[in-house]
């Protein structure tokens, strides 16, 4: 086994060159290059953590914004509903009033017309009585030669009319 057979001859060389090489590795890589690598990794991890934090905060803000918008929208919707309801009530009231006015006007017109009709009928009735009384006077004077006063004739006519 050369490891043992050559031990006495080579151990100094082995140890020396190992220390030289490992020393180089330790100081050039371990002390020289590695801190840069580590700081780069740490910086990147920090950057990622910060970015994730910022994204989280932005999402929270967006959520809050949306919530606020929802509340505002609800409020506006309620307002709009109230406005519509008020407008509806107003319109209904106006319609009601207009209908009532129209109904009153119609009532009035109808009443006037009926009064006119009644007056016309009464006038017509009176005319008919006058004509009938005159006719009765005429008939009596012609047939019986009697002269009947206008009042009597009228009374007779009225009596006949009343008795049908």
């Amino acid at each position: 086994m050369p490891q043992i057979a050559q031990l006495a001859d080579t151990y100094a060389s082995q140890v020396f060159w190992l220390l030289v090489c490992f020393g180089l590795v330790f100081f050039v890589i371990g002390r020289g290059l590695l801190p840069g690598v580590v700081s780069t990794i740490d910086q990147r991890n920090k950057q990622i953590a910060d970015d994730l934090g910022a994204a989280e905060a932005a999402r929270a803000a967006a959520d809050a914004e949306e919530q606020a918008w929802r509340i505002a929208e609800g409020k506006q919707r309620a307002q709009a509903h109230a406005l519509i309801a008020a407008a509806k009530a107003d319109a209904a009231r106006n319609t009601q009033a207009a209908l009532e006015a129209a109904a009153a006007r119609i009532e009035e017109t109808t009443a006037a017309a009926e009064a006119r009709i009644a007056a016309a009928r009464a006038a017509a009735q009176g005319e008919v009585q006058d004509v009938a009384a005159q006719a009765a006077q005429d008939i009596v004077s012609r047939l019986a030669g009697l002269s009947v006063s206008a009042e009597d004739a009228r009374g007779a006519v009225q009596g006949v009319l009343a008795h049908g």
Partner: peptide, 20 residues
């Protein structure tokens, strides 16, 4: 103590260089 440059030392140096 003799510190001759051996094949062992050569490969340690190669290891070091490759690593660097």
């Amino acid at each position: 103590h003799n510190i001759a440059f051996t094949n062992s030392a050569l490969w340690m140096v190669i290891t070091t260089l490759v690593l660097i």
